[in-house]
Design a protein around this nucleic acid. Sequence first.
DNA 1: GCAAAAGTGTTCCGACTACACCCATGA
DNA 2: TCATGGGTGTAGTCGGAACACTTTTGC
Lengths: 215, 215
Amino acid sequence: MNKKIPVAVVAADICTEVKSDNLYKGMKCLPGALIAIDENAEDTIVRVLKERTNLLGDDVYVEQLYSFSEIQRDKRSRSVSIAYMGLMDIGADYASTDTPLGKFMPLSKVKNLAFDHKEVITLAHKRLRSKVLYSTIIKKLVREKFTFSLLQQCYEIVLGKALDKRNFRKKITALNLIKETGEQKKEGRMRPAMLYRWSAKDVEFYDVLGFAIRK
Amino acid sequence: MNKKIPVAVVAADICTEVKSDNLYKGMKCLPGALIAIDENAEDTIVRVLKERTNLLGDDVYVEQLYSFSEIQRDKRSRSVSIAYMGLMDIGADYASTDTPLGKFMPLSKVKNLAFDHKEVITLAHKRLRSKVLYSTIIKKLVREKFTFSLLQQCYEIVLGKALDKRNFRKKITALNLIKETGEQKKEGRMRPAMLYRWSAKDVEFYDVLGFAIRK
DNA sequence: GCAAAAGTGTTCCGACTACACCCATGA
DNA sequence: TCATGGGTGTAGTCGGAACACTTTTGC
C-alpha cells in the first residue's frame, strides 16, 4: 500500500497556467471553458477534462459545486462560472494524465492562483469533508479492490482526524457496503491484507458513519 | 397560533405568468432576471424579490440552490440559470407581498410550470428537507418569538413525519439554541403557551436533532 | 527474532425511543 | 364541565467510544 497517499484528493486541483494576460501572467488556475451552444455544463466539464488531462468521463466523478458571479472575480472582463468538483481513484496514476495544457499537483503546492480559484478549491475541500459524513461519496475516491486500511486512511485524510481501527471496521462491516474478494494484497514484508470491493447496492446514506460532529 | 401553516415554506414558489411567448403562454414560472453588469447573482435575487414581491433583503434568506444548463430548458432560446432558494418567516403575511408581477401560492397549487421550473422547486424542497437535519436553517423559517408547537410543526412539515412532543422538547432544550422570553401566547380558549426566541449563538450544527435517517 | 502492519472483543456510558397523564384556559 | 392544546418523567434499549494484545509475514 502507498505509504503516502496524495493529499490532492480533490480533482479540482488540476492546474494550468494563465499565459494570455499580463494581470494574471504565470499564475495557476483551474481548467475551464465556455459552455458551447450544443452542450450543457456537465458536457463541458467532460470535454475540458479530456482536453486538459486525457481523463475520460468514467475516470472522474463530477458534481456541481457552486456558481461564482462576483463582479471582479476576473478582472479582465465580467465572468460567471459554474464550478464542478471532480473525484477520482485515490490509486490513480496522476502523472500519466499530464498534458501540455494541464496537470495534477498536491493541494499543498497549489499557490498563487488566478481569479477566485483559491476560494473554489477551499469550497470543494469543505464540501467533500461534509459529504463523506452523510453519503457514500467516498466510493468515488476508493474504487475497485481495496484494503480496510486504505479506506480508513482515505476517511482520515478527508476528515482530518484519526479514527479507531476496531470501531471503523465494525461500522463499515455493519453497513453491508463492502464484501471480501477472497484475494489478498501483499506489500513489502508485512502481513498481507484482505482485499474488499463495494457491494452492488448503491444507496445514498445520511450520517453513514456516525462520525458527524454532535452537540 | 395558526391552525393551518402554509405548506409553501419554500420562497421559490413565488410565481408570475409567462405572457411573452406562445410556447409558454399562460404558464406559471419562478421569478428571474438577467444578472446585470454591475451586480452579482445574489444582488440580482434581492432586486428580483423587491420588484416582484416587495420583499426586502431582510425578509428573505436566500441561498444558492443549483445552476441549470440543459440545452432545451428554455425552448425559445438558450438559457443558463443560477437558481436560489429563499426562506421566510412561517408567520409572514404572504398575501401582503403580492404585486402585479408576482405572488405566493401554496406548493400544492403550483402546477403547469414553464421551463424546467418544476425540477427547480423539487430540488429546493429536497434540499430543505435534508438541511434541517444537519444545520440550523430552520431559524430562517421560524423567526422572532415562537412556541414549541410552532417549531415542532415546522419540522414536521419539512420532514413529512410526526415527532414525539416530549422527545422533541428534550432535544431542542439540550441544544441550548433557544431561550424563554417570559412571555406567553394566548390563542383562543386554550392554555397559553410559552414564547421562546433563538439564543445568540449561531453555530452551524451537523445532525442537530438526531432525526437523520440511520442505517 | 524482530519490525511492521493486519486483525480482533468487551465493557461502559450516553443518547434515543416509547409511552400516558395532568394542567390551564375560555366558552 | 368540557374541549383544546400545553406541558411533563421514566425505564429500557441501542449504538458509539475507549481501549491492548495477538497474528502474519519478509528480512
